[in-house]
């Protein structure tokens, strides 16, 4: 039981099936507060589905999904409530609000009252430019603040989404494929950025880019067919026979 009470996120025996196809099979995973974890695994392994279950997009058929030392059963909440509990998410396909400016994307993400009345008359209309710019500065998008988010490059959209994630100030960040479509230089910057973020947040990063995963320097979990295949340091996982067989290739 102590594994639960010390965890920020605790998945145990989680299964999900879509029309009989088992996307997650009795998946178990524990994340310590402040920990950063990289998740790797072949296409269709269930990495994104795992994030869907945590954030309330998909309901688990069975198993426990617990947050914050086991005190919160996430299966009882919907997407908006889970976001309010302090779980933020960056999607695999970058999803920013394309017809809003870069700055407005951050404005909408900023932590604070999310009622219609706050947005209409209240505090959300009095957010200081500096607050928004602080987050844009972190992801190097200050010069782009007035542009439409839809006009950003793929990599910049990924960064904007990370800025939005930070602006929510969540306890736990779920980041799905942050460097897909980025140049090598952008990838390096992103790795540094995430390591920085991980200093005071718990983070789960899904990524295929092994160089990037290595640069993160954290524990790695490899998923395969909906459950954990291997877990440990990057060297241990990358050297695992089964991981090489199903994912990394010989």
């Amino acid at each position: 039981m102590s594994a639960v009470t010390q965890s920020i996120l605790y998945l145990d025996g989680v299964s999900v099936s879509f029309d009989g196809f088992k996307a997650l099979r009795s998946l178990s995973l524990t994340l310590q507060p402040g920990e950063m974890r990289a998740i790797i695994g072949p296409n269709g392994a269930g990495k994104t589905t795992m994030m869907d279950v945590i954030t309330g997009k998909t309901k688990a058929d069975e198993g426990d999904v617990l947050f914050d030392k086991g005190s919160i059963d996430l299966s009882r909440f919907d997407e908006a409530a889970i976001a309010e509990l302090g779980i933020g998410r960056k999607f695999q396909k970058p999803t920013v609000f394309e017809s809003h400016s870069v700055a407005d994307n951050v404005l909408l993400a900023l932590k604070g009252d999310r009622s219609p009345f706050s947005a209409l008359f209240g505090a959300r209309n009095r957010i200081a430019t500096e607050t928004i710019d602080r987050y844009l500065g972190i992801v190097h998008l200050l010069d782009h603040r007035a542009r439409l988010a839809g006009a950003l490059s793929h990599g910049q959209k990924q960064w904007l989404e990370i800025a939005m994630l930070l602006a929510q100030d969540p306890k736990l960040l779920l980041i799905d494929e942050p460097v897909a479509g980025m140049t090598d230089a952008e990838t390096d910057v992103t790795a540094e950025l995430l390591k920085d973020i991980a200093r005071d947040h718990s983070v789960v990063v899904v990524e295929h880019d092994m160089g990037f995963v290595r640069a993160l320097g954290c524990r790695v979990t490899c998923l395969h067919e909906g459950s954990v295949l291997a877990e440990g340091s990057i060297d241990a996982v990358a050297g695992n026979e089964r991981v090489i067989e199903v994912y990394l290739g010989r």
Partner: peptide
């Protein structure tokens, strides 16, 4: 107002808006 911006966000990405913690239905 910012409320108008939330409305446009809902128009362009309803589920994304939910994941930001907004009660879209309200």
């Amino acid at each position: 107002s910012t409320y108008g911006k939330v409305l446009v966000a809902i128009r362009d990405g309803e589920s994304r808006t939910r994941f930001l913690g907004y009660r879209v239905e309200h």
